[in-house]
């Protein structure tokens, strides 16, 4: 479902003397349906960079990133947008939404983008928000005013609204209490059970233990490790 082969990434800082910073090279990874892979490595080792490359948020310097048949590293914007709508969900650590939009609509949005009926989309959103213990009185408010933990749960609800065949999870259980953490892990397990391919970053070792099938240390993809000079 998610196939990376020999992916590299560098940044060229044009406004700082054109400095070129190699951050990753030779990254290869294969995640099949129903599989959950945890990215590990020290802070700054490139876990988030890899996630962003897979999502098409960062432009790969070389290599292939195939998600559901689309090569993200070479695809046109339109194809990537479609892949994001239909195939690949992303739960980031930060909630970025249009101010003023009610929480219920924020969560329903991925389904509306797929032209699902509005009622069905809202029902699903309500179901997820209830599961994640977001009080009903908050559903009609914009999540921009919520606490960090609440925002995180809204973000998760949104990421699980549509049954994406592939998912990227960036610290999905961070800043959650025990009960909510359990709900989220349950959602991940359910996604795996229906065949979703998942790549995640989990600092929470217990959580990692519970849902992940294997771990990949991104240190292996650092340019130094593979012998490319920075």
């Amino acid at each position: 479902m998610i196939e990376l082969s020999d992916v590299s990434k560098s940044f060229t800082l044009h406004n700082q003397g054109g400095a070129r910073i190699e951050v990753m090279s030779g990254a290869s990874l294969s995640v099949g349906p129903g599989e959950c892979v945890a990215l590990t490595g020290a802070s700054g080792a490139g876990k988030s960079t890899l996630m962003r490359l897979i999502y098409g948020n960062y432009l790969a310097a070389s290599g292939q990133i195939i998600v559901g048949g689309v090569d993200v590293a070479a695809a046109r914007p339109r194809e990537i947008l479609r892949m994001r709508r239909e195939t690949l969900g992303y739960v980031s650590q930060f909630l970025r939404v249009v101010p003023r939009v009610p929480t219920l609509d924020v969560v329903a949005e991925p389904l509306l983008a797929l032209d699902r009926p509005a009622d069905e989309a809202r029902d699903r959103a309500a179901h997820l928000l209830a599961m994640l213990n977001i009080p009903k009185r908050l559903w009609s408010l914009s999540p921009t005013t919520f606490s960090g933990g609440e925002q995180q749960r809204v973000n998760i609800a949104r990421g699980f609204a549509h049954d994406y065949p592939a998912l990227l999870l960036d610290e999905p259980t961070a800043s959650l209490d025990i009960a909510n953490r359990d709900v989220v892990l349950g959602l991940i397990e359910a996604a795996k059970a229906r065949g979703a391919a998942i790549v995640g970053i989990f600092h929470d070792a217990d959580a990692r233990e519970r849902v992940c099938d294997r771990e990949i240390d991104v240190a292996a993809f650092s340019p130094c490790a593979s012998g490319v000079a920075a």
Partner: peptide
């Protein structure tokens, strides 16, 4: 390019 890609990983000076 994609809006978030251009904003988060701009290529041109």
């Amino acid at each position: 390019g994609l809006t978030d890609q251009v904003l988060d990983d701009p290529q041109h000076a």
